[in-house]
C-alpha cells in the first residue's frame, strides 16, 4: 500500500488500527536495522524500535505531510538512537572510547551476529566514528539512501553530508588497513 493511502487510513478512526499495523509491517525491518547498526545490541534495538513506533502512533495527528512518511519515521528513529547513545554516555560517566568498547564487546559476544570476520572488523571500525557521522555512513552505505533524503532526515545540507560521508569512508579504510 502506498504511503498516501496509508496516511488516509491512519486519519480515519475506523481504519486507524488496521493502517497502523500495515505501517509497522512495512517499515519495521528498515527501522530495526537502522537502529541496530547504531546501538548494536538486539535487546536495546528491540526496545527502541518499539519506542519509535509508539511515538509514531502518538504523534500521527502532528504529522503534517510536509515530508514523506518514511522520512518522518526515520527522523524519529534517528533521534531515538542519538538520545539513547547520549544517555548511555552520561549515565555511566564514560568517555566515548568506553562506550565504543562496550558496543564492541557486544559484537565479540557473537549473540545475534552472523557477519564474517571482515564485516565484524568493519562494524568495530565504524564504532570509532562520531555518532552523527556513523548514522550518515549507515544511511548512505547500507541503506543506499540519496543525499537529499538523508538531508531531510538529519536536517543537514547535502554538501555537509557528502563531506561527512567521504571523511567516514577515509577513516574506516585507514583503520582497517592499519588493523
Amino acid at each position: 500500500m502506498e504511503d498516501s493511502e496509508l496516511i488516509e487510513k491512519l486519519k480515519n478512526e475506523d481504519t486507524k488500527n488496521y493502517a497502523f499495523n500495515l505501517l509497522v509491517r512495512k517499515y519495521q525491518e528498515r527501522i530495526y536495522w537502522h537502529i541496530r547498526k547504531m546501538v548494536i545490541s538486539h535487546e536495546d534495538s528491540d526496545d527502541l524500535v518499539q519506542e519509535v513506533f509508539v511515538k509514531v502512533w502518538k504523534y500521527l495527528d502532528k504529522f503534517r505531510g510536509d515530508s514523506q512518511l518514511y522520512t518522518w519515521i526515520y527522523r524519529i528513529a534517528t533521534n531515538e538512537c542519538l538520545s539513547f547513545l547520549n544517555k548511555k554516555k552520561k549515565r555511566f560517566f564514560l568517555p566515548l572510547v568506553d562506550v565504543e568498547k562496550e558496543l564492541s564487546t557486544h559484537i565479540d559476544s557473537g549473540h545475534h551476529y552472523s557477519g564474517d570476520e571482515v564485516q565484524i572488523k568493519l562494524q568495530k571500525a565504524l564504532l570509532k566514528l562520531p555518532d552523527k557521522q556513523r548514522i550518515v555512513f549507515n544511511m548512505k552505505y547500507y541503506d543506499d539512501m540519496k543525499y537529499d533524503q538523508i538531508a531531510e532526515i538529519t536536517n543537514t545540507s547535502v554538501g555537509a553530508l557528502k563531506a561527512s560521508y567521504h571523511h567516514a569512508v577515509k577513516k574506516i579504510e585507514e583503520i582497517l588497513t592499519n588493523n
Binding site: N17, F20, N21, V24, R25, Q28, E29, Y32, W33, R36, K37, I40, H42, D46, V49, Q50, F53, V54, W57, K58, I107, H112, Y113, S114, G115, D116, Q119, I120, L122, Q123
Partner: peptide
C-alpha cells in the same frame, strides 16, 4: 553482507507487540 541477525520469528511477532504498546 548483513552483520547482525535477529531471533527466529522476531519480525512476525513485533507488529502485535508494538500495536498493543501503542
Amino acid at each position: 553482507r548483513e552483520t547482525f541477525s535477529v531471533p527466529d520469528g522476531y519480525f512476525d511477532s513485533l507488529p502485535t507487540i508494538i500495536q498493543a504498546k501503542a
